[in-house]
């Protein structure tokens, strides 16, 4: 036995050393790479924050960075040092600014993020909650040539599913669109262009209200305490400080006001109604398909019959009989219902 123990130990030790230090795929190497990756992820996220602040003309500080990254201030200080050492940002007093090189870097990450969200929303069956999470990871993995290939394949989309512009290959971005919701007068109509996602508590409130980009809104009441408006048939009330975080683009006045509380899902066989709009929740392949079939604002739709098991329902749409499932019908808003003559 003793004669065997020595060589056996030697072999085991050799194996352990091999697996630990194997070039490229050794455990140590992998561990270091993961550390570096998370370092890289953190600094890339920091650059993104700096860029967002710049785009929205806010001042970025170590404190705001710490809040945005959810990292203690002490750790952020080290991070800022590394970023400055890499000549990606400079600090002037308390405020942090991107260098041209840092701006370019940040735009590359934002481009990858928004492109990936666009990809997930248009070409996969994944639902809204998954997009942001997955894009937050994918943005650090996509190389810029991969991002370009993806963009080309999708027809270089100018906007992501939240209505935010996607930076071009050369890092161009249009000036910020829209004005604060608070600047509208009563009765004016506008379309939501962007929801500010910081501070987080305010953003959460906007999401809870069910607001999303591309939604049409009409102001009904403004006072010092609250701002009331209608959107997709529902009344919303926000504090002015919250409403200021909603950017809108005014709409021409002559268009009729969309008044609707109901969707196609409530249409009973024998009733008809006029389509007011497709919800922004319906997107990608499905949205294009429904529009190709003629489901557009102004289309008169009549429910003709229901499947014996209750779903789907067949609708007469521009002369053709089309079956839609309940959850699809719920994405199509309609005006008042009436019995078919």
């Amino acid at each position: 036995m003793n004669e065997l123990t020595g060589p056996l130990l030697a072999v085991l030790a050799a194996l352990a050393i091999y697996f630990l230090f194997r070039p490229g795929r050794g455990w140590l190497e992998r561990w270091r790479r993961r550390l570096r990756l998370s370092d890289r992820v953190l600094s890339e996220d920091a650059l993104k924050h700096l860029y967002h602040c710049e785009y929205e003309q806010r001042v970025a500080t170590v404190q705001s960075l710490s809040g945005a990254l959810g990292t203690p201030v002490e750790k952020v200080a080290g991070l800022v040092q590394r970023i400055e050492a890499g000549e990606l940002a400079t600090s002037e007093g308390a405020s942090l600014r991107l260098t041209p090189k840092g701006r370019e870097y940040a735009l590359r990450i934002i481009r990858a993020h928004r492109l990936w969200e666009r990809y997930l929303s248009e070409e996969t069956g994944l639902k809204e909650p998954d997009w942001h999470k997955r894009a937050e990871q994918q943005e650090h993995r996509l190389t810029s040539s991969e991002a370009d290939a993806l963009a080309a394949r999708m027809g270089n989309p100018p906007f992501d599913p939240h209505g935010d512009p996607i930076p071009t290959q050369r890092g161009q971005l249009p000036p910020r669109r829209g004005q604060p919701l608070t600047s509208l007068a009563v009765g004016e109509r506008a379309r939501i262009a962007h929801l500010e996602d910081e501070p987080e508590a305010v953003y959460a409130q906007l999401v809870a209200e069910g607001l999303h980009p591309l939604m049409a809104v009409q102001l009904t009441h403004v006072s010092a305490e609250r701002i009331c408006f209608r959107a997709e048939g529902e009344e919303h009330v926000l504090a002015p400080i919250v409403a200021a975080n909603v950017a809108v683009v005014p709409l021409p006045r002559e268009q009729p006001v969309e008044e609707s509380l109901e969707t196609l899902a409530v249409l009973e066989p024998g009733q008809e109604a006029t389509v007011v709009g497709l919800s922004p929740n319906c997107r990608g392949l499905e949205r294009r398909r429904l529009m190709d079939l003629g489901l557009l604002p102004g289309t008169v739709v009549a429910a003709e019959m229901r499947s014996p098991v209750g779903d789907p329902t067949a609708f007469r749409i521009r002369g053709a009989l089309i079956a839609l499932r309940g959850e699809q019908a719920a994405n199509i808003r309609i005006g008042s219902r009436r019995q078919v003559a």
């Binding site: 190709d292 079939l293 003629g294 749409i317 521009r318 002369g319 053709a320």
Partner: peptide
């Protein structure tokens, strides 16, 4: 001819 509108699109 029976679904003229959609076809005209």
């Amino acid at each position: 001819a029976t679904r003229l509108e959609r076809n005209l699109n």
